[in-house]
Design a protein around this nucleic acid. Structure first.
Lengths: 342, 342
DNA sequence: TTGAAAGCGCTAACAA
DNA sequence: TTGTTAGCGCTTTCAA
């Protein structure tokens, strides 16, 4: 009792009702008789009908497509996000269209706009660091395009953002450094044009301050979050006298750069130098010595963001305990140890 | 002279021609007068019109959506592929929908079918190791869904596949091992249910054979391509007497496992043990010692696959020198060295 | 609670 | 070379 490509008309005919009624059943309208609904549902199941997205979209000006906008070189992070997003997407009949972009590009905002309009995306999820871009958010709001940002600072309404409390995580990292007895600490920040870099730096410094430890300017450098820049910053910090006994980098890539420089200089980690990063990317657990770092619940954040987005698109479709803040946590491995006794 | 949401009707009216003619211009039909075309193009530019994908799709039963099917844990690989695909996609007005899947799942084929039909994908690109799945390819062919596979062995028509010549690359790796003087070599293969694992293994062994070097069964293990299984296999191989002076793993993840075990056992790399992998993923260049490995031109392969796919969907749209075979190449780093003199 | 009919923006037979 | 006219499969006024 199957039909090749069943349409709403087939269902209507077979169920002995009108198209309109079938449409109501599909869209869970409450204005359908208990009995009628049953009959229609039965036919739908029998001929294995599922509504055509394009037709639906054309008629209702929706696409059932969500977009993912990012300008982030960390492939592992992207991959985890995609999986988290897709989990929720498929569950609710949405599909995910990816869009790596170049936020430095001059027509970046328009370019994103074109991306959204050319496929009539129902909404987008924006990853850091693009998520910090005010202009983009403003353009999206102006274009009436639902969006959710994933970020590390609170820069939007609850419905439009998922935040990881990185300040709090850095506090834990500072506590660890203190506990291990480090006083002479080097810090490699991310680009300070990003709020997240500032957030992490401030969180770390503030907590150290609680223990009356401060980091002089000469032991703070600004990196670019890349492996290469991690190496450059590490070379600089490790040439200082006295040499820091510990270095914290804004991410694992740069921390890997620190490990490399230390190895080249014959400095033993963690005996002579403790090193830590942020992200817990694949490197962190594989590198030798394995890296103490901070892990964000990336997939969970992505899922939450997607739920919020879908809830904006079709209100009340997902009953949510809409947490806004997610807690990263410290992962202690081999690269950190007690400061050497003098 | 802009219109809020210009449609084909606006263009037709303003250009003083019929809808049909505008449609012809949009679709580059040759059956349009030189003059008419100019006028229409001018109007299109003036009011910034771009055809609605959904409407187009509904009418022509196409979606301008391509799918990416994979079941591969290497995030970096996926990321590179996505970028390669998107490069070509956007250029030709297509969008990319991602679909990580579970090929062990029993209803895997149907699940992919649903993915394709629910968004009426115009075609899909399949990554290894799913790309080796015969059933999937057969189902796609039966469903008349254009596809291109990325693989390491020739298992389809030229139009449907892009191959990396991994056998050839493994030959180069074997040459290196021989050149460095290794005779006692350990090998960690990938799961031998995958053709690519077999291909790499055979390529390596065959070339060694050319130099009258053979690897006894006791120095060959079958890994699962994971870091953990790399560690297990390495423990096994390194407990053999005499100990191998070199170990080649089917991928970088497992090679990283070998480095870890060697480090734990106090075996110096490369002085006492040479190690090499395959993939050149992010680990390879960051880990200490950095890993000798093989790099495939992943982005280029992905772009080529996409061009082939689009060419299948709309014949002759891309003039192509349709290469089928792509050459990976050896990347020599710190983890390999001359065998220790006895 | 249900149905008839008019589109959504585009493509594609068929004519002219 | 160009236009007329139906739809594609669905949603949605409006009326019953």
């Amino acid at each position: 009792m199957e039909i090749k490509n069943p349409t709403i008309n087939d269902v209507a005919r077979l169920a002995g009702v009108s198209k309109r009624t079938v449409s109501r059943v599909i869209n869970r309208s409450p204005l359908v008789g208990e009995n009628t609904r049953k009959i229609v549902d039965k036919v739908i199941a029998e001929i294995n009908f599922s509504p055509d997205k394009q037709a639906r979209g054309l008629a209702s000006s929706r696409s059932y497509l969500l977009g993912l906008i990012y300008d982030n070189p960390d492939a592992l992070y992207i991959d985890q996000v995609q999986r988290g997003v897709l989990d929720v997407c498929t569950e609710h009949g949405y599909e995910l269209v990816v869009h790596p972009c170049h936020s430095r590009q001059t027509d970046f905002i328009q370019e994103c706009g074109r991306f959204i309009s050319r496929s009539k995306l129902d909404g987008v999820i924006i990853l850091p660091p693009v998520s910090e871009n005010k202009e983009l958010a403003a353009a999206l709001r102006a274009a009436n395009c639902p969006y959710v940002r994933i970020a590390s600072v609170d820069l939007d309404d609850n419905a439009n953002i998922v935040i990881s409390d990185e300040r709090q995580a850095m506090k834990a990292m500072a506590d660890l450094f203190v506990e291990l007895g480090h006083q002479s600490i080097g810090y490699i920040s991310g680009p300070l044009k990003y709020r997240s870099s500032i957030e992490r730096k401030e969180g770390f410094l503030a907590e150290l301050g609680e223990f009356n430890i401060s980091i002089p300017e000469s032991r703070m450098t600004e990196g670019k979050n890349s492996y290469e820049s991690g190496k450059e910053c590490a070379s600089e910090l490790l040439s200082r006298t006295p040499r820091p006994t510990a270095i914290l980098a804004n991410n694992d890539e740069m921390a890997a750069g620190v490990l490399r420089v230390a190895s080249d200089l014959g400095i033993k980690v963690p005996e002579e130098l403790s090193v830590a990063g942020f992200d817990d990317n694949i490197l962190a657990s594989r590198i030798i010595p394995s890296l103490t770092t901070i892990r964000r619940p990336v997939e969970a954040m992505a899922s939450l963001a997607t739920q919020k987005l879908i809830n904006t698109i079709q209100p009340q479709s997902i009953p949510l305990k809409f947490a806004k803040l997610v807690k990263p946590h410290l992962v202690i491995r081999e690269s950190t140890g007690k400061v050497a006794k003098t």
